[in-house]
């Protein structure tokens, strides 16, 4: 592990976001609604995943003027997405001074072989993962926070659940293996032995493990928290619903009280119908966002 001070400070901000909700926003008005509802951070992007899915085209880093406006409007951390492998989008976001960069499969990948070498940046990165090997490869590249990929813009929690359960199960399995078995496992996971050993020893990732991709209700947020997520990202779920303010507040409450069914009932009570959503199993392979990156 790179336990130098720069990396500790990157992981430190992720620690501060635990138990919180990070909300996708496309402009300053939405950012303000998110902040007022109790978001722990906002994620600035050009279009929410549901619109990217619908409209198609190349999805890039958000316009700088929009991100800057959001940074000026709210006092909570502002994250922004860069395309997978697009280290120059990331450099520009770093120069702008965003608090976290999401090297995200939601945007159109810029490089089909290489992820960004995140160790060379001062700004921290979060990356998506579907399984432990993918999570550890991203951490080896310097990611200071991992989130499940789920299936962004689907309003369907099934993929985030699959990814969180997979990561948790694979971590548990490592804890009972012997030293030489970990060497073999490291090859299978395509991840550095040092990180595999760290997970085997602690039973958890060396960086915070959040969940994203399909969270649309307080119950969804509580579900992934129960499965081991330490905070949640909500993308299209809030601003693609007909009650963004109430829904944002309710999901904030659910992330805190994920263990308290009475509070979750209160949080769910005033909400109407959430975003329409997609049956992920009906999507073509080419329509999936989660298979971007490796």
């Amino acid at each position: 592990m790179y336990l130098d001070d720069t990396f500790r400070v990157k992981v430190g901000l992720a620690e501060m976001l635990k138990g919180g909700v990070i909300m996708d926003v496309t402009n300053a008005d939405q950012a303000l609604i998110a902040e007022k509802a109790g978001a722990a951070a906002v994620m600035a992007l050009e279009r929410v995943p549901a619109d990217i899915r619908k409209e198609g085209g190349v999805a890039r880093m958000a316009p700088i003027s929009k991100i800057r406006e959001i940074m000026h409007t709210v006092s909570i951390p502002v994250m922004a997405k860069a395309r997978i492998g697009h280290f120059m989008e990331a450099r520009i976001l770093e120069a702008l001074g965003v608090d976290y960069v999401d090297e995200s499969e939601v945007l159109t990948p810029a490089d089909e072989e290489h992820h960004i070498d995140k160790r060379t940046f001062k700004v921290p990165f979060v990356c998506g993962a579907r399984n432990l090997g993918e999570a550890l490869r991203r951490i080896a590249e310097g990611a200071a926070m991992i989130r499940t990929k789920g299936e962004a813009g689907s309003g369907n929690i099934v993929e985030a659940v699959r990814h969180m359960r997979t990561i948790q199960k694979e971590m548990k399995q490592l804890t009972v293996l012997g030293k030489e078995e970990l060497v073999a496992e490291s090859k299978k996971l395509q991840a550095p032995l040092e990180l595999v050993e760290d997970v085997a020893q602690h039973g958890k990732l060396p960086v915070p493990n959040f969940s994203a991709g399909g969270i649309a209700t307080p119950a969804d947020a509580a579900l992934v928290m129960q499965l081991g997520a330490e905070a949640v990202f909500v993308g299209s779920g809030i601003f693609k619903s007909d009650d963004p303010e109430a829904r944002a507040r309710a999901i904030v409450k659910a992330a805190t009280y994920f263990n308290d069914p009475q509070k979750l009932l209160e949080a769910s009570e005033e909400l109407g119908i959430g975003m329409h959503g997609i049956d992920v199993s009906k999507l073509q392979e080419s329509e999936l966002l989660q298979t971007r990156g490796w």
Binding site: M16, L17, G20, R249, V252, T256
Partner: peptide, 15 residues
């Protein structure tokens, strides 16, 4: 603890 004071404040008020 550390965290976002505006988030904590919101929850203190709501609850």
């Amino acid at each position: 603890p550390g965290g976002e004071s505006s988030t904590m404040l919101k929850l203190l008020e709501l609850e």
